[in-house]
């Protein structure tokens, strides 16, 4: 357990001392804090702007940062040969992968909490009425980051950085519209319909973890909806993580 925590801590230290992470975090915090500027430029209601803009900025920047961190991590370790210094110790490669994953998630969680704090301050300052969907949207975003990190590790454990990034971005985009595949399956022929229906069942459905629309509309999120999103995220994350460890265990470090 100590080995896992120290590996995660090393990953966390790397991430928070990385200039890219710091720049993205500062950028996000400034953008959220600038919601008041955006308010003056819109014809929409104040409540909607604060909720939508804040969550949108957090979502966009955190997802971009997650993809950047998760697909680059293993390849950086292999290029710099730092992985040699870890794997030559009496630990399994699976522990290395899990340690790195925990490190990435610790960093992302801390950043998300920092952004959420600034966002909450905005809500209090502008006295925006909120439903439970706002915290649910933030928790949903965390679920998406959990899954995206696992996907990034999975693809980078078998391919280069660019290929892994393309795969993760592709799956994320498809995952946003997975529900549409189900609707499409009814309208298509038997073969294409079966393919569309298959896609619906085998692709991770990111829309289940996305509660931003409810938050922007001031609607509430039921516990069932939230647990459905959380379960989807945890299930898929475990699957990708197991896949990543299986691939990484057989990989030659030339």
């Amino acid at each position: 357990m100590r080995q896992l925590l120290m590996l995660a801590l090393a990953g966390f230290r790397e991430a928070i001392r990385n200039r890219v992470t710091v720049v993205v975090a500062v950028f996000a915090l400034v953008l959220i804090a600038l919601t008041s500027v955006v308010m003056n430029l819109t014809v929409l209601s104040l409540d909607r702007v604060v909720t939508d803009f804040g969550l949108g900025v957090m979502s966009l920047l955190m997802i971009s940062l997650t993809i950047f961190m998760s697909v680059g991590m293993l390849n950086r370790e292999l290029e710099r040969r730092t992985v040699f210094l870890i794997v030559s110790r009496p630990i399994s490669r699976s522990l290395f992968i899990v340690g790195r994953y925990v490190g990435v998630m610790a960093t992302l969680t801390l950043l998300l909490l920092a952004m959420s704090a600034v966002y909450a301050a905005q809500i209090v300052i502008f006295d925006v009425p909120t439903a439970n969907s706002v915290p649910a949207a933030i928790a949903g975003l965390w679920c998406q980051l959990l899954l995206l990190s696992a996907m990034g590790l999975f693809f980078s454990s078998m391919s280069g950085q660019v290929t892994a990034a393309i795969c993760v971005v592709g799956l994320y985009l498809v995952g946003q519209w997975t529900s549409d595949l189900h609707v499409l399956a009814v309208k298509l022929g038997p073969v294409m319909g079966a393919i569309a229906r298959g896609g619906y069942y085998v692709l991770p459905n990111f829309a289940r973890m996305d509660f931003k629309p409810q938050a922007a509309a001031g609607a509430s999120v039921t516990m069932g909806e939230f647990l459905d999103g959380l379960g989807t995220s945890v299930g898929w994350s475990l699957l990708f993580l197991v896949g990543a460890t299986l691939l990484f265990r057989r990989r030659d470090f030339k």
């Binding site: 790397e14 730092t82 040699f84 210094l85 030559s88």
Partner: peptide
Amino acid sequence: YVPEAPVPYEHL
């Protein structure tokens, strides 16, 4: 173990 031309975790 010490690898050839090691590049350790520079941020540590």
